[in-house]
């Protein structure tokens, strides 16, 4: 930590005892499943990652381990770099003009920024769900079939049908749309669209799914459905989710990382982060003192 951060900490330093903590805990304990007891193998490993947009540095020396088949949540106030960091994992920052990433990010031990890595293949292994539901202006079926088609995952028409069906089932959308697969995906409700986007991501059988504030454009009921889905998906996928909502992080994640001003403040098991964080800034943010 440098001086700048010490200052920020001072600014937000609470002098009295923490309030609101019990409320938060009650929300969490009522909805979340039992957290993992066993440590899981590491799937994605980031070391000293820096991101620059032009001359402006957005992320400073972030190192983190993402465990397999668990949900890791990135929290922090707006502009703290959590989305930027997430977009490093599937190299979506490459599409932004003037961006530069330094450091190492390993997927199963291989550096994804190495010259020999094929970005197309990487993005097939690390899927992404965006902040706003962004179905293509095509039918529901075509939306899900898009990925398998471009990657040649289905050789026969029947295979494609099967992939579409299982993906929609895994995304919990099958029963709602099975009778109208050929209607436009843009005609669905916001929550359904977001689950369609999740189905679209699942259809290419990724190993890791990145979610960039997937519920920020949804109402509470649709949010609850998507959260339920995320909880189910972690049986099979490694999930990294960026969220503004601390309750959401508490509800769906097993590990939480707190970002502030481009730095990783603290990272650890979600339970511990929300009940007994080491850093004052985490505590302040979680209890709603800033951000």
């Amino acid at each position: 930590m440098n001086n700048e951060h010490a200052e920020v900490m001072e600014m937000h330093m609470p002098t009295e005892k923490i309030v609101g903590q019990t409320d938060l805990y009650s929300i969490k304990s009522s909805t979340v499943r039992t957290p993992d007891a066993m440590p899981r193998p590491i799937r994605v490993k980031a070391r000293e990652v820096n991101v620059f947009y032009g001359s402006k540095q957005a992320l400073f020396d972030v190192s983190i381990d993402v465990p397999e088949r668990a949900v890791t949540a990135f929290i922090g106030p707006s502009g703290c770099g959590k989305s930027t960091f997430l977009r490093c994992f599937n190299r979506m920052n490459d599409t932004i003009e003037g961006s530069k990433v330094t450091g190492r990010i390993e997927l199963d031990g291989a550096d994804i920024y190495d010259g020999s890595i094929d970005v197309v293949e990487l993005r097939a292994r690390i899927g992404m769900v965006f902040q706003k539901p962004n179905p293509f202006p095509k039918s529901i079926y075509e939306n899900v079939a898009y990925g398998p088609r471009i990657h040649g995952l289905a050789s026969a028409k029947g295979d494609l049908d099967r992939i579409v069906e299982t993906s929609l089932q895994k995304a919990g959308l099958w029963n709602e749309v099975k009778d109208r697969l050929h209607e436009p995906g843009t005609g669905l409700s916001g929550g359904q669209q977001q689950r369609l986007c999740i189905a679209r991501a699942i259809a290419v059988s990724p190993e890791v799914i990145l979610m960039d504030e997937p519920c920020s454009a949804l109402d509470p009921i649709a949010t609850a459905k998507v959260e339920e889905l995320i909880d189910e998906l972690r049986e099979n996928y490694t999930i990294v989710i960026v969220t503004h909502s601390m309750q959401q992080a508490a509800r769906v994640s097993q590990r939480t990382a707190m970002f502030h001003l481009g730095y990783l403040v603290e990272e650890g098991p979600t339970d511990k982060m929300f009940t007994n964080p080491e850093e004052k800034r985490t505590q302040d943010y979680i209890t709603g003192r800033f951000g």
């Binding site: 599409t95 993005r123 097939a124 962004n134 293509f136 898009y146 679209r200």
Partner: peptide, 13 residues
């Protein structure tokens, strides 16, 4: 832009 990102994010060229 979300359309474009959605497609690129799925590994399309």
């Amino acid at each position: 832009r979300a359309m474009r990102d959605g497609s690129l994010g799925l590994g399309a060229t």
